[in-house]
Design a protein around this nucleic acid. Structure first.
Lengths: 224, 224
DNA sequence: CGACCGATCGCTGTATACAACGATGGCCGA
DNA sequence: TCGGCCATCGTTGTATACAGCGATCGGTCG
């Protein structure tokens, strides 16, 4: 009964089902639960409870929670043991936005400088689909589209270090703005198109400025 | 009620904090080992071995290694299980520098805008001590001074989100540049003084520009 | 009736045990 | 002699067990 698998499975597994380590599955499950609000901000993350919910032992859960702490989606409970879903203060959100604006600006600048044309075309197509859905599209589809947009834009930036830093930043702001994101979708997509144009024309300065301003504007619009 | 400690207490090194959780102690020990080069870049991190070395079980070690992965000081081994100390390629270092330059620029800008005078005075004093040590000081003392400088500058920036991002970035570049850092100390300290002056005068633009350029220049000087 | 004090319990920190997977080296057959 | 297969082992993934700490609640004493 020899299972000859000398091949180191290059199968790009359909995320999170078959052969992925439990720790990673737990992480994705928890992250998704937090970002969709199924785990509300301030809610405590109890290892035992979560392990029962997800059908695994506490060990992978613990691992996932530690990762969430590193990403800033969860925070240690003030003055006690335990962890809860992050509830960033308004001050802290402002600080996050300031950093994110600068980094999105850098990313747009790098994209304008280095981006391969193929990626630009992909983004262009995505933007058109997004603009069409802006009016009547189901919210979760729009959110998914937004995620894809940012992933492509990261790729366009061609800076892995930057990519690593931006992902958690985006998730943290998403965690805060999730509720009021739908209504702002229209202006957002318009600005995205402008940024893309600047990138396509190789105008570093303009692309950086537009991207940076976009972050500030989008945040302000959702805060009032 | 006396403490019946059937627990064998092998703490011959009470130096590293009395009541700190083991996971944190492991993390600090490993981080320090990596940054000082006692764990060389490319060296594999074996849980069992490290747990024996540090006198604890694999669990806290595992936790620490996961954290190092999140910070980028360690990376998963390509195409196999296991983790090794990071060995950033020249390309990746360039990307790190680009990001760091932007963030140090932002930090200097924020410091110029918001910094409390008390912190400035502290940094001023530090710089003078550093300048004095530049010629003949022992290398590790200079390194410690440099660390203190950056911590104070972070505090001056008054942005926690930024602080969180910068620390691992600095450590990753430090990991690469460790060897050739001593000889560049002189010019570094001079530039530090210039940046501080700009901050003290509230000149955001200049402070940001100087800080950003300083990162690029220091990196270039260490790469040739 | 109120406040302090102690037992209980829920949860996390840590250790140990076991399973699974891949790598390595030796052995056998061609 | 060389190539392929098999046993073994090293290392990580996962589960379970236990200890310790803090919070909560009930009881007793002022």
């Amino acid at each position: 009964m020899n299972k000859p698998t000398p091949n180191p499975r290059p199968d790009p597994a359909p995320l999170s089902q078959p052969r992925m380590p439990l720790g990673r599955r737990a992480l994705e499950a928890l992250r998704e639960a937090i970002l969709t609000g199924r785990l509300a901000p301030g809610e405590r993350l109890i290892e035992e409870r979560l392990s029962a919910d997800l059908g695994m032992s506490r060990v992978p859960i613990r691992e996932a929670i530690k990762q969430l702490l590193a990403e800033g989606l969860a925070v240690p409970i003030e003055g006690a043991r335990g962890v809860q879903v992050a509830t960033p203060s308004a001050d802290f959100v402002a600080e996050l936005i300031e950093v994110r604006a600068v980094l999105e600006g850098l990313n747009a600048r790098l994209a304008a400088r280095n981006c391969a044309p193929g990626v630009l075309i992909q983004i262009q197509a995505l933007l058109e689909r997004g603009a069409a859905l802006t009016q009547a599209g189901p919210p979760e589809e729009l959110a998914a589209l937004n995620g894809t947009y940012h992933r492509l834009l990261d790729e366009a930036g061609t800076n892995r270090a930057l990519r690593e830093l931006m992902r958690p930043l985006r998730e943290r702001t998403e965690l805060v703005f999730r509720r009021n994101s739908a209504e702002r979708a229209g202006p957002d997509w318009q600005e995205h198109a402008l940024i893309l144009t600047a990138i396509a024309e190789g105008d570093e300065e303009l692309a950086a400025l537009l991207a940076s301003r976009h972050v500030h504007r989008a945040a302000r619009a959702r805060l009032k």
